[in-house]
Design a binder for these strands. Structure first.
Lengths: 252, 252
DNA sequence: TCACGCTCGTGAATGCCGTTTACAGTTATG
DNA sequence: CATAACTGTAAACGGCATTCACGAGCGTGA
């Protein structure tokens, strides 16, 4: 009845706190399994064992194994986004921010290949079923990180891009919905050609990171970082700022 | 006892033929499961049911589910390579061949996303264990398709590439083993810079195809083909033959 | 022709899995 | 303090991969 109990939301009851804590323990155990067994190797009974419960008890916290993995996915997207945001100062030069965002992305992917696999290689596994709202939201946050970084680069210093009528008609058509959304919501003055450049860059960054994380580069080189850095350097040229690329600080 | 029975190998006994036929039926059933359930959704018992056998019977043909999937993987690599070779005339202009190889690759990936997932997205699933010999061999054939196509382009008309001392030292170091192998075996006169360009191109092609197949492009565009075609066009410029890119024949 | 061995298939059994159900103990609340 | 909500358990179900012991059929050499 004290005065400070009036806002209902910020005062979770004791049980709620314990419940949330247990949920986190469960997700942590699930992640440990993900790390050692890969996506698909997360087992409900094993998670329960690790956390000191019987299997049916987990159903008090997650309605199914699948939803547990989904919750873990959301957490991992958030972790990845947090790491990326923590690595790139928003106030920095826009391209420097993009550079640091991308490097943090690559670093996280290399350090957590199985988590990366869960986030980015599952679609073929789960093809045909649309993702959960929460999942979609989490991956949107990730996408927006890159998009807003690109928009900042463009707003700070537009660079030459193909004119609207130089873009392939097929691409123009396919890109229209996204482009109108962009213009209406976040980047009023971005031409179609810039959107194309954004996607090109995103494909190169993601492709480089994903191939490395999935081991599709190791036949030619043991470490994909130099290739990644070169991609970033060539992207600096693409956005008309060849000087903006700076090599990474030497790692320890 | 006839004269034609002398070579032991080319005359498989009747049993051997039946056995092989059953093996193929099993792999076909496994593939059907792969298509409908995705990698990881291939179940031994379900395969057995589909082929009209009990589960233990499959162990007469494959020592485990895992090895069945591996055999299927090898088959799929071969099918992909056959399709690609069938789509690209070896005698054609070297870049045209690369173009057709890449398009066939993309086409196959789009038409068989689950098979593509099994071939190219499993490493995170099976991270830490080196592939079977047969698997390695099959994926080597795939890699060599692209490599030899690139070598043909280079041999036909070398193009400007970064000089050896312009390549990042880190990349030079990592690339050395592969480069010396290339020079020793298939491309005696290929400079380091050309190897770098090859990998760049490969990363862009694969990245574009993989992202599309995994649905990581659909948030921006429903169909990744125009983006893929643009990548191919820009690769034509990269190899100094901007004229060599020709748009695809209109699809039906 | 017959008997032997090899191949291929089966049913039963083991131990794991995800999930459901019924039940008991604990905790918060009127 | 009684009542309801919450959190855990044991038992059970069906499905899974895998192993084993067994039998039926084929191919071959005496």
């Amino acid at each position: 009845m004290g005065a400070q109990t009036s806002p209902a939301l910020p005062v979770p009851t004791r049980r709620q706190r314990l419940r949330e804590q247990t949920q986190n323990e469960i997700k942590a155990a699930a992640r440990a399994q993900l790390v050692s067994n890969g996506p698909g190797g997360v087992q409900l009974r094993a998670v329960a064992r690790d956390v000191g419960l019987t299997a049916p008890a987990l159903y008090r916290y997650f309605p199914s194994l699948e939803e547990l993995v989904e919750a873990l996915t959301v957490d991992l997207f958030d972790e990845l986004c947090d790491v990326m945001e923590g690595a790139a100062a928003p106030a920095a030069d826009p391209f420097a921010r993009m550079l640091e965002l991308s490097r943090a992305f690559r670093r996280w992917a290399m350090q957590h290949p199985h988590e990366f696999g869960l986030l980015f290689a599952s679609p073929p596994t789960a093809l045909g079923q649309q993702p959960t709202n929460a999942c979609q939201q989490a991956s949107d946050r990730f996408g927006n990180l890159f998009a807003s970084a690109f928009i900042a680069i463009w707003d700070a210093a537009p660079f030459p891009v193909p004119a609207d009528d130089e873009v392939e008609p097929a691409m123009t058509a396919g890109l229209m919905p996204y482009r109108t959304w962009l213009v209406a919501n976040v980047a009023p003055d971005m031409p179609l050609g810039a959107v194309v450049r954004f996607l090109e860059g995103w494909v190169r960054i993601f492709g480089c990171v994903a191939m490395d994380a999935f081991g599709h580069l190791s036949w030619a080189m043991p470490d994909g970082e130099p290739m990644f850095e070169q991609v970033m350097s060539s992207l600096a040229e693409m956005v008309g700022r060849p000087d903006a690329y700076v090599p990474p600080k030497a790692s320890v």
